[in-house]
Simulated scan of single mutants.
Amino acid sequence: MQDILAVVTIVVTGVMVGVEFAVAVFVNPILDRLPDNGGLNARSDGARVLGRAMPVWYFSSLVLGAVWAGVSWGEDGAGYVVAGAALLVSSIVLSVLLLVPTNSRSAKWSAEGPPEDWREQLGRWDRYHYLRVAVIVLAFALFVVALV
Rank of each mutant, 00 (worst) to 15 (best):
A6H: 12
A6I: 04
A6T: 07
A6S: 15
V7N: 03
V7C: 05
V8S: 02
V8W: 03
I10K: 01
V12G: 04
T13V: 13
G14M: 12
V15M: 07
V17S: 09
V17P: 09
G18E: 11
A22W: 13
V23R: 06
V23S: 05
V23P: 01
A24H: 08
A24D: 12
I30H: 12
R33V: 00
R33G: 05
L34M: 15
P35Y: 06
D36E: 15
G38R: 10
G39F: 01
L40S: 00
L40Y: 01
L40W: 02
N41I: 13
R43V: 10
S44I: 03
G46W: 03
A47L: 02
V49H: 13
L50F: 15
L50M: 15
L50W: 13
G51R: 09
R52I: 09
M54A: 11
P55A: 11
V56R: 11
V56G: 11
Y58V: 03
F59G: 08
F59Y: 10
F59P: 01
L64M: 10
A66T: 14
V71A: 09
V71F: 04
S72M: 10
W73L: 14
W73P: 01
D76S: 15
D76R: 13
A78M: 09
A78H: 10
A78K: 04
G79Y: 07
G79R: 07
Y80N: 07
V82E: 08
A83Y: 05
A83R: 08
G84Y: 05
A86E: 04
A86V: 13
L87V: 08
L88G: 02
L88V: 06
V89A: 04
S90E: 08
S91D: 06
I92M: 15
V93Y: 06
V93P: 05
V96A: 14
V96T: 07
L97E: 09
L98R: 13
P101D: 06
T102G: 03
T102Q: 03
S104F: 04
R105E: 15
A107M: 05
K108Y: 00
W109N: 05
S110D: 13
G113D: 11
G113Q: 07
G113K: 10
P114Y: 06
P114L: 00
E116Y: 00
D117H: 07
W118A: 01
W118E: 02
Q121I: 06
L122A: 01
G123E: 11
W125P: 02
R127E: 14
Y128E: 09
L131Y: 02
R132K: 14
A134P: 02
A134W: 08
V135A: 04
I136A: 05
I136C: 03
V137K: 01
L138T: 14
A139F: 03
F140P: 00
A141R: 02
L142A: 09
F143M: 12
V144D: 09
A146I: 00
L147V: 07
V148R: 12
V148Q: 11
